[in-house]
């Protein structure tokens, strides 16, 4: 690749996760949630898709999206296609839900082994597992360089220049060759909405299905095991202030004045 590259082929990993406001309950195993909740796109993944679409608008090329999960996860791909992605890959099986970051990355690497991309985007972390690992592992499996928590991407003559977010308001530019994996931070851009035409066009765009059997030989046992899931213990004594709003206001002002002494 390198010099003279005119088009970018980008793959975006997009995960379906329980909706932010969804009330979650444990299932019988006590190690996972009951899955009868509403789902949405993992937030940073939506920003990753938007960034891929913008890069394609600038440089031409192609945007593909990939997800692993049960049938319901197709919704994420449909939305991405409606927003402008060209095609989609669905690793479809319930079993994908329980994979750790290593196995998810291995399954993706196996599913795309015959394809060629210049860039792969993932979100910087998932809202359900929160491993913050899938993208970096995928890069390592492919033998590609990576950069994490990205807030800006420019194509250069030799590859790309990305802006990494560091802690506490610091940033850093990094120059790197292609192909590469980037993990995208929320807020890198402003999200677009799907248009009616987009939604219509999406119906004719291809979704390649990949079964568990097709990638089974690439994945192994999870190397980390969730023993149990539980509601976290409270560390602080919390006083609940209750009543109609006017009464809550009075009670709070009393606290502000007499206990917290900020009035």
């Amino acid at each position: 690749m390198g010099k003279g590259l005119t088009v970018l082929k980008i793959l975006v990993c997009m995960k379906q996760v329980p909706q932010k406001d969804a009330p979650l309950k444990l299932n019988e195993s006590g190690a996972w949630i009951r899955e009868d909740v509403s789902y949405e796109v993992n937030e940073p993944d939506a920003f990753a898709l938007e960034e891929a679409l913008r890069q394609r608008e600038k440089h031409k090329g192609e945007v593909a999206v990939i997800t692993s999960g049960p049938a319901r996860a197709q919704q994420v791909l449909r939305e991405a296609l409606a927003k402008g992605a060209d095609r989609a890959i669905h690793l479809e099986d319930n079993a994908f839900v329980g994979l750790d970051a290593l196995n998810t990355a291995k399954a993706f690497a196996a599913a795309i082994k015959d394809e060629k991309y210049d860039l792969i985007f993932t979100g910087l972390q998932s809202d359900d597992y929160g491993y913050a690992q899938t993208g970096v592992i995928l890069a390592d499996l492919l033998g590609w360089p990576h950069a994490t928590i990205i807030m800006q991407i420019e194509k250069t003559d030799t590859g790309i220049r990305v802006k990494r977010e560091l802690e506490a308001g610091y940033f850093q530019f990094v120059d790197m060759p292609l192909p590469a994996v980037l993990t995208i931070q929320s807020g890198i851009n402003k999200l677009r909405y799907a248009t009616l035409i987009g939604i219509k066009q999406a119906k004719n765009k291809p979704i390649r299905k990949v079964t568990l059997a097709e990638v089974q030989s690439a994945i192994g046992e999870n190397l980390q095991k969730i023993e149990r899931l539980y509601v976290p213990q409270k560390t602080k004594k919390t006083e609940h202030i209750e009543g109609p709003p006017a009464e809550i206001a009075k009670k709070l002002v009393d606290k502000l004045r007499n206990e917290l002494r900020v009035l």
Binding site: T238, P245, A249, L252, V253
Partner: peptide, 28 residues
Amino acid sequence: PIFEIADYAVVGNLFDIVPPLTEEVKKA
């Protein structure tokens, strides 16, 4: 999860709670 570290918890709609609180603070 914010309630896990809160000293005072108000479970409710902020649009109902905040305006009267502002008024009450002003009065005080």
